[in-house]
């Protein structure tokens, strides 16, 4: 297995740009949503599922197949569990249904 120099260079490009984009995007996530953010990025980083599938499906040796099998299970838990739990959390974040206070000043601003 020898990764080409070309790939390493391309990979560094991709890593740097994705990191920058990620920084600028995630910086804007409000603190309110930091727990769902962690749950979501966890699900996303379970993309090592892709690597696990190749190791398991490629069937190099019995040994790597076992490792791949456990890896697919572990990352699949994170994919399914991660997306479900993020959605469950986000469903709870609700805006105020209607202005509860009888103060007319606020009602005018809202309308």
């Amino acid at each position: 297995m020898n990764v080409s120099v070309e790939f390493i260079m391309t990979g560094l490009f991709v890593f740097a740009l994705a990191g920058f984009l990620g920084f600028e995007t995630i910086r804007r996530v409000p603190r309110l949503l930091h727990t769902p953010l962690m749950a979501l990025t966890n699900a996303l980083s379970a993309i090592s599922l892709v690597g696990s599938i190749v190791v398991l499906g490629g069937q190099y040796t019995a040994y790597t197949t076992i490792l791949g099998f456990v890896a697919v299970i572990a990352s699949m838990i994170n994919v399914v569990g991660g997306f479900l739990i993020t959605d469950k959390m986000l469903r709870m974040f609700k805006p105020r249904e209607k202005p509860k206070k009888p103060e007319p000043a606020e009602a005018e601003v809202a309308s």
Binding site: M1, V3, S4, F7, I8, T10, G11, V14, F15, A18, G19, L21, G22, F23, I26, T41, N42, L44, S45, I47, S48, V50, G51, V54
Partner: peptide, 17 residues
Amino acid sequence: FVLENNLLIVAGALDGM
């Protein structure tokens, strides 16, 4: 980087960031 897979690099970079 090891698996030569850009998607892993992107998702890892986002999670790491």
